[in-house]
Nucleic acid binder design. Sequence first.
DNA 1: CTAATCTGTTAACATAAGATAAATAATCAC
DNA 2: GTGATTATTTATCTTATGTTAACAGATTAG
Lengths: 187, 187
Amino acid sequence: MEQLFQYFRKFNPLTGNAENAITEISNIVTVKKNNDLQSFGQTCKTIYFINKGVARIYYLKDGIDITENFFFENNIIARVESLLTGRPSRKGIQVLEDAEIVSINAPALFGLYDRFHEIERLFRKIFEAAYVDTVNRVEGMQFHSAEERYKSLLHEAPGVIKRVPLKYVASYLGITQVSLSRIRGHR
Amino acid sequence: MEQLFQYFRKFNPLTGNAENAITEISNIVTVKKNNDLQSFGQTCKTIYFINKGVARIYYLKDGIDITENFFFENNIIARVESLLTGRPSRKGIQVLEDAEIVSINAPALFGLYDRFHEIERLFRKIFEAAYVDTVNRVEGMQFHSAEERYKSLLHEAPGVIKRVPLKYVASYLGITQVSLSRIRGHR
DNA sequence: CTAATCTGTTAACATAAGATAAATAATCAC
DNA sequence: GTGATTATTTATCTTATGTTAACAGATTAG
């Protein structure tokens, strides 16, 4: 849990009491490569934090597997469109390398917001930062060619290309695997 | 201000004291069609709420005007990538119809978070909802043709097509004005 | 009212990306 | 290791979208 609390400190340091309260509603799971941490269907009730490994959020559009996002060590994963709305999620979380993951019971966490204002503030800041990332991603998608998007991914998150199968990267970029291969072959 | 507080009530009702505190750091401005409410360059320090009118957030990419988003009555506008990070904004806010807008001093608002937990909670919920909208927008952009994006905009926000010049709609959809025209001429 | 500008449409052509199929290359199960 | 499976690249053809330009209708300024 220490790794998680260290991550929290970058946003909003917690008192020992608050940390303990979070520890009580969390547990650590290990997941083998290519297994699903969560599959779609039900309402998402968990927030994850990756101690070690890589994961992706994905969904099926007309039967085609599309990666919404990748997540590496020391990051939170949450299917917010379900978690924050209470609606069932159409998305799954798959682990792409053997992983160690902290899973936090989200309803219990939200329940702590009243007792621990500091926890509400912490997650406010975490989600605000994720929101900003997503706004920036929309901007990146709006008027860049596939090649530009690939190059900026290479630059901003080289780990993705190194650690993730290209077929997942392609749909993340909004193109087919074949197009990505063509771009990589540089023209 | 009553219109704003009614909007707030959908997220988290405030006590009279909290409403008064917000009133004190806000004022109402009127802006004429096509004028900028805010231009780019400085760090964004204001959150807006539209009582009446339409506005858009836009930016220049290689000298080309791109619309990031449209905002109608009874909605909050904020350039979050600046507001929540403290970095200067490269985006402007332009009014597309004569508008009446509430402007809230953001640093003062954030200052109220300590005195009024309920205000922090309110804006946490507002930004969470905006975050979810943005995640859904990424999904919509990821694997839809321009025509599909246009049709779903028609369906989900018909006001955009009715009240906004098409040149702005085109860049919002991530296509050129000519392509949009072609799509509208249905093939 | 007239000229000038802005906005939207259409056409012709160029280019990027999708679909499909097939050939390699890499990984996994045994 | 060997064969089977999965991932990636390459090739061909097709389609969607970008680019540029011309034009028509609206809107605005004087």
